[in-house]
Design a protein around this nucleic acid. Structure first.
Length: 201
DNA sequence: TCAGCGATTAACT
DNA sequence: GTTAATCGCTGAA
């Protein structure tokens, strides 16, 4: 089992659905003040750029917030949702192609006690990182993590050699995107079957 | 168990 | 002025 940081080429993949599935089982890690926290990616959603009505970059929309999505793959997109929670996305594909993958849940790996402190909960087993807002709090991700390289020493994604059986990768419509009309039905959410950390069925 | 609802704020129109 | 890729609490069943 070799541990290895994902390289630039992983993020340049032109198929955001493919990258999304490949991120399942990878390990998202942050290092803040020499403190490491990490978790195995269990659930993701793909946001397929200018033709996807659920994407912030739908129809070439460019604003202060979405500008980072047009950067070259391999950086983070973190934004405030509902005025309270930071959601973490991975930007993929080439420059000016605003594809993104929302990380929706993790299975905690390193620094679990630190994550419980940040979340202000103890021993509530499956409630630590089973949702996009929760995992950001647990890993200490806030808006200072926006537009950061995922090859940095502050936040990165690594391959610990964890593999899932292909038939245990399920898909469903994305969560909380009813505003996207017919695109709200697209099966762009991917998660690991039978895993206790999936945010909801 | 679970549907309903309020919290809270930056960025959008 | 309105909205949002969510969460945790509440009260009813």
């Amino acid at each position: 089992m070799k541990i290895q940081k994902l390289t630039k080429s992983f993020y340049l993949n032109k198929n955001v659905i493919d990258v999304s599935k490949k991120l399942l089982g990878k390990v998202l890690t942050t290092q803040i003040d020499n403190t490491i926290t990490s978790g195995i990616i269990i659930e993701v959603e793909a946001y397929a750029g200018i033709n996807d009505q659920a994407s912030h970059a739908y129809n070439h929309k460019r604003t202060q917030r979405t500008e980072v999505m047009y950067e070259i793959g391999g950086i983070s997109y973190v934004y405030l949702c509902y005025g309270m929670y930071y959601l973490f996305n991975v930007i993929t594909n080439g420059k000016n192609i605003p594809h993104a993958v929302l990380i929706r849940s993790l299975e905690p790996l390193d620094g679990i006690d630190i994550m419980e402190d940040r979340r202000k909960i103890k021993g509530k087993k499956y409630n630590l990182t089973n949702g996009p807002g929760k995992l950001s709090i647990a890993l200490g991700i806030d808006k200072s993590f926006n537009r950061k390289s995922l090859l940095s020493d502050k936040i990165w994604i690594q391959d610990n050699g964890i593999k899932f059986n292909k038939k245990d990768i399920l898909s469903s419509p994305r969560i909380g995107v009813d505003y996207a009309k017919e695109d709200a039905k697209l099966p762009y959410r991917f998660y690991v079957n039978y895993n206790k950390w999936v945010s909801k069925l």
